[in-house]
């Protein structure tokens, strides 16, 4: 009698449970395959960067390396082959200039659009928004002519190169739009309260709006800096001559442009890894910020 009292699952429930487990196993398996697909290029990059030239030449390729066999020397060789420290410094400088400029210009303009009442505000804003649909390639032609006319290309000094690489990217209609949205969410009453207390517009921006919009501003800083780190086309266009003026992406491609000849793949991959790692570190440190920012902003930095 006592056995009968044990809570037993009905057949239907058992079937449902079984089905659920099977489904979960399938989902996790599929996700693991996708994860392998995503991670493989990184793994191949890291693996190759740690191999010796002889190990590279092995067919079929070696798929695992014991830590003891790691050729960390490749990184030293890669750094010798091209001045990566220099490239990184250049990239950081350009990122800093363009990000700083972008923040200043977009915060000020977004404040005007969000808070100040002026003639033609909505019209001008609409023009800005509609110009977002014009592909950047259309600007590049004239911008190249402009920086050339400004004397930043011929007999290029380091300052010229920095100016040519950063000036066209010191503002952004998209970030302006993004910030204005954030500013608009600050209740009007906060502004009125500040007015009653005799706060100037600029002080209000500095003391109230900017602190409230801090998450958005940080997102913009991260996306903008990431954008510079990955920038290839424009820097390549305006600073082709002097190797010392290159940014990381250009240095990478230009130093190892050949796929057919005798390429030291391990060094090439070491260099690629050197360029990839800082971004991955930043990502892992600011994971939440970046992921939230990206899904909110809806663009690629």
């Amino acid at each position: 009698m006592s056995e009968n009292r044990k809570p037993t699952l009905s057949k239907k429930e058992q079937a449902a449970r079984k089905q659920k487990i099977i489904r979960l196993v399938i989902v996790y398996t599929l996700l693991t395959f996708v994860a392998l697909f995503i991670v493989t290029p990184f793994y191949w990059m890291i693996l190759t960067s740690l191999k010796t030239a002889q190990q590279i030449d092995r067919i079929p390729p070696i798929l695992f390396l014991k830590p003891g066999d790691w050729q960390l020397r490749n990184f030293a060789l890669a750094l010798q082959a091209a001045p990566y420290a220099r490239f990184m410094m250049n990239t950081v400088i350009v990122a800093a200039i363009s990000t700083f400029g972008t923040i200043i210009t977009t915060v000020l303009a977004a404040f005007a659009f969000a808070r100040i009442n002026f003639k033609g505000r909505d019209f001008i804003f609409m023009i800005l928004i509609s110009s977002m649909m014009i592909p950047g390639e259309m600007f590049v032609i004239t911008n190249f002519m402009t920086v050339n006319t400004l004397g930043w290309i011929r007999d290029q000094s380091f300052i010229d190169a920095l100016a040519a690489m950063s000036f066209p990217f010191m503002t952004s209609i998209f970030y302006l739009f993004f910030l204005r949205q954030t500013f608009k969410q600050v209740p009007d009453e906060l502004y009125l309260a500040a007015k009653v207390d005799g706060t100037s517009d600029f002080k209000y921006l500095l003391k109230v709006m900017i602190p409230i919009a801090k998450p958005t501003i940080i997102t913009i800083i991260i996306l903008n800096a990431m954008g510079t780190w990955n920038a290839y086309i424009w820097p390549n266009l305006v600073s082709p001559q002097n190797e010392n003026y290159r940014l990381v992406s250009n240095g990478l491609r230009n130093a190892y442009r050949d796929l057919s000849g005798q390429v030291a793949y391990n060094e090439q991959m070491s260099a690629a890894l050197i360029v990839t790692i800082p971004l991955l570190i930043v990502f892992l440190l600011l994971k939440k910020q970046i992921m939230r920012g990206v899904s909110r902003s809806g663009i690629k930095g």
């Binding site: 996708v34 994860a35 995503i38 991670v39 493989t40 290029p41 990184f42 191949w44 990059m45 190759t48 590279i56 030449d57 092995r58 067919i59 390729p61 990431m226 780190w229 990955n230 290839y232 990381v248 992406s249 990478l252 491609r253 190892y256 796929l259 793949y265 090439q268 991959m269 260099a271 690629a272 890894l273 360029v275 990839t276 971004l279 991955l280 930043v282 990502f283 970046i290 992921m291 990206v294 690629k300």
Partner: peptide, 25 residues
């Protein structure tokens, strides 16, 4: 994991892809 490609330098990872598709290695 799935987000990683977003924070990757396209040139660097492009080179890794090219090597992933290498005929022999």
């Amino acid at each position: 994991i799935f987000f990683l490609p977003y924070v990757t330098n396209a040139i660097a990872i492009g080179m890794a892809f090219a090597f992933l598709f290498h005929r022999n290695y």
